[in-house]
């Protein structure tokens, strides 16, 4: 059957090529995602076997029994009890081989991390992510940082509609629902940058609600934690950043954004350490001056529906403001 060959071929290329693809479910990098992939492979091989058998039977039937002149009228067979029983029991048996590991994995991936896990609260917003580390007293936005080979527990909820947190190489998805807390737990095997995105349709910019996870060695992670804990840098006297800080103080930004010591808006992400992030706006754009320019002047034009209103600032003010934001490491 050419289709089978095609299927296998495509899957193999997908597996091979999947190695460096940022959101592939086929290259697990945590205990959680490895469990799920193991289960998927189990189902896949059974399914492939059944596929070849049943499609094969179908093919044989239509080739062997096509009408040819001179062949006797077919016998009017109405059924066959033994056959009926066996093709009821055979799939049932196969399903037992799938069901048992399924149930086992359901319980082992139910989201309970062992004692001493690092707990992070994940809060979904239309269309960005907030992470709070209650034990470390810090928070992060869109980019989640975690230490490698440490059990992580994510307690997830939403500030508005339902979202779904999904970083394929680190594990399966779970929905974020207002008024509820859903959990996942995992331990990442190797350091690196992992991509993810929201998987539950959540409105206009669902496609643009992406995220990054940075899995770091303990020392790098610790350095990042210290940096986030520090109060925001005070700009040097007379620097453009200082002028930018003045612009920020009198701009509408303060209604929506927090910068520790300056403003306490809670509509958008906290900007206290915005300069330390690699990306902005739900990991959609790199964090650089040109992007910030366009973003501040007209965010919804870059990200449909974005809940940050377009701002009007003079070019000088804007440059200063951006210098200030970039100084907030």
């Amino acid at each position: 059957m050419p289709l089978v060959l095609l299927a296998v071929l495509l899957l193999l290329t997908a597996c091979g090529g999947g190695a460096d693809l940022p959101q592939s479910t086929l290259v697990p990098r945590s205990d959680f995602s490895a469990d799920l992939f193991g289960l998927y492979k189990n189902v896949f091989w059974w399914a492939l076997g059944v596929f070849i058998l049943v499609e094969g039977l179908l093919l044989v039937a239509i080739v062997r029994f096509r009408a040819r002149p001179g062949r006797a009228e077919p016998k009017p067979v109405h059924g066959h009890t033994v056959l009926e029983i066996s093709w009821t029991l055979a799939p049932a048996l196969i399903l037992v081989f799938i069901a048992v590991p399924t149930m086992r994995t359901i319980f082992s991936t139910a989201g309970h991390a062992p004692e001493g896990a690092l707990r992070v609260e994940v809060i979904g917003h239309q269309w960005w992510w907030e992470y709070r580390y209650p034990t470390l007293n810090i928070s992060a936005y869109n980019e989640l940082h975690i230490p490698v080979r440490t059990p992580i527990q994510l307690d997830m909820t939403s500030a508005d509609v339902i979202h779904s947190f999904w970083v394929p190489r680190l594990g399966g998805k779970r929905d974020l629902i207002q008024g509820r807390t859903n959990r996942i737990a995992f331990r990442a095997d190797s350091t690196g940058e992992y991509w993810g995105q929201c998987a539950e349709f959540c409105g206009a910019s669902h496609a643009n609600m992406r995220l990054r996870v940075f899995v770091q060695s303990d020392s790098v992670f610790q350095r990042w934690v210290d940096q986030q804990r520090a109060s925001p840098a005070t700009p040097a006297k007379g620097s453009p950043a200082e002028a930018g800080q003045q612009v920020y103080r009198r701009s509408p930004c303060i209604a929506c954004h927090t910068i520790a010591g300056l403003s306490q808006g809670r509509v958008g992400p906290d900007l206290t350490h915005v300069g330390s992030r690699f990306t902005i706006a739900g990991a959609l754009f790199p964090n650089n001056a040109e992007i910030l320019h366009r973003w501040i002047m007209n965010a919804p034009a870059m990200k449909p529906g974005a809940l940050m209103t377009p701002q009007s600032l003079s070019p000088q003010d804007l440059d200063a403001l951006i210098a200030y934001l970039q100084s907030l490491k």
Binding site: S33, L36, Y40, V43, A47, L58, I106, W166, K173
Partner: peptide
């Protein structure tokens, strides 16, 4: 022929943990 394929992918959805990677 086609329904068989859909039924088999249905089973991979039915395996709940595996479906956490496939749903949505």
């Amino acid at each position: 022929a086609m329904f068989i394929i859909g039924g088999l992918s249905g089973v991979s959805h039915a395996s709940a943990p595996s479906d956490l990677q496939q749903t949505d």
